[in-house]
Design a binder for these strands. Structure first.
Lengths: 172, 172
DNA sequence: TATTGTTATACTCTATAACTATA
DNA sequence: TATAGTTATAGAGTATAACAATA
């Protein structure tokens, strides 16, 4: 097991990353804050799903998810379909308008990162992304990472981020 | 410059890290939330300083810092000394009680990380910590890093926080 | 007039608990 | 009775703007 100092240093950096997240959040359009944006992102990556699944993927309480979903639904970015198999459930589906917003979010996020991280090599970016994914994974709280896990309901989920419109950027 | 997809993947992981931060925040004592805890941490690492310096190091608006400082001062963890050189300024100093709280915070944080990241090697931890520090650094918003308790993995760059005249934390 | 810090206000995010409607 | 989802409420975090005291 690693030294205490090593863990402390990591904890500090995790805390400090909050400033980066705030900086990214500032680039978002006023109509789509980070919370709702995360909902759009997860639907784009994993395809249609129910509320509880979104909650699980974002590691949020369902009450929180419900609010974010209400936001994106009101803007017409997501439609709430009834589930033929379970009357209590709502199936969420991204609309074309939702994909448009997502494309916009992706653009600003990529711009921000490309501008600030111009000095990074592909390998460095991949290493950081991979280690962060593992960190989230080991914490058991972050399920929105690559791999699969979003399927189960036969719907589309073209998953993989196409060059065009890709998932959402930041959040809180 | 890296591909769009690479930046998107990183943006997603930064977002997902929010769940880890929430998990860590949940381990904090009710009397010391994350915001105030960050104030204690920065004072412990960099020594006595004024409000504006804390704001800069944490990349927070001074109004936010003021609230966090008021919290820790009320608990007797920090004292606000007058600055002989500038009557407007307040010099913040960690009290022995503040150091005690800090030790407690460190313990729970290390426990949480050590438990979840038991499978990580020292090298992996250092790599992640170093890349996160660089990320914050390149964003120009995170100044609370560099040189720490004994072992900087890799060489932290410039160490500018001490001299502290970095750009404004937030846009004004 | 400019700067340091405080306070008031507002908004986002999150969680707990109470509630509904199905199952 | 249990589960899916909604809503009400509360607390933490942050930012903007107005303000006080000092430079």
């Amino acid at each position: 097991m690693a030294t205490q100092g090593r863990y402390m240093a990591l904890a500090r950096q995790i805390t400090a990353l909050g400033a980066v997240k705030r900086a990214l959040a500032r680039t978002l359009p006023a109509t789509c804050p980070a919370g709702p944006a995360a909902v759009l992102s997860v639907l784009n990556r994993h395809g249609d799903m129910r509320m509880s699944k979104v909650s699980e993927l974002l590691a949020l309480d369902m009450s929180v998810t419900s609010r974010h979903v209400a936001h994106v639904a009101q803007h017409g970015w997501v439609e709430r379909l009834s589930d033929p198999a379970d009357g209590r459930s709502r199936i969420l589906r991204l609309t074309p308008a939702g994909r448009d917003v997502l494309a916009e979010l992706a653009d600003v996020a990529v711009d921000a990162l490309a501008h600030r991280l111009a000095g990074w090599s592909d390998t460095e970016l991949d290493t950081l992304t991979g280690l962060l994914a593992r960190l989230c994974d080991d914490f058991g709280d972050c399920r929105d990472r690559h791999q699969d896990l979003g399927h189960g309901s036969g719907t589309d989920h073209g998953d993989r981020a196409q060059a065009g419109h890709t998932p959402a950027p930041s959040r809180t």
